[in-house]
Design a protein around this nucleic acid. Sequence first.
DNA 1: CGACCTATGTATAAATA
DNA 2: TTATTTATACATAGGTC
Lengths: 89, 89
Amino acid sequence: MGRGKIAIERIENTINRQVTFSKRRGGLIKKARELAILCDADLALIVFSSTGRLYDYASSSGMKAIIERYQQEKEENRGVLNPTSEAKV
Amino acid sequence: MGRGKIAIERIENTINRQVTFSKRRGGLIKKARELAILCDADLALIVFSSTGRLYDYASSSGMKAIIERYQQEKEENRGVLNPTSEAKV
DNA sequence: CGACCTATGTATAAATA
DNA sequence: TTATTTATACATAGGTC
């Protein structure tokens, strides 16, 4: 997008990389929020920039609850090859 | 986008909501992956659909490591009002 | 460094298969 | 219900301030 097309590979220029990070981070969080609202999904996003700063977003139930739900889900599916039994719609 | 414009609010039609969820989930994960690669960011995304299915993405260091890093960061910042001391660039 | 400006590349809403 | 098509809305690369 934008004035030119770019390849999906690490941006070597530091300034450029940080500018792109700021722009895309905003876009990603916006999309995450939209998905949560439009589709009634429960989601969490954690982002650490290459300089170590943390940015995050979590839908209404909250980051802590989502992480716990994730861990619980992983725990339950341990050893399950086809976890599409009853949840698939 | 698409043929028509939509408001960012819960999509009431179930079929529509699930179709939109599938499309946007894919788009969001793609954007997350691009951000991680382009900007050398470390990120994790956890998504639970309204039907309870789990989808996730984590950059190279892995979900577990990112969640731990997140919790550690939150722990360190407990009580810190302006955590932009040395990390801010 | 963030805010704003556009030309252009992408994502995606609806329709269709 | 999932895949493809197509018209549009949106995201964003590169620039400017």
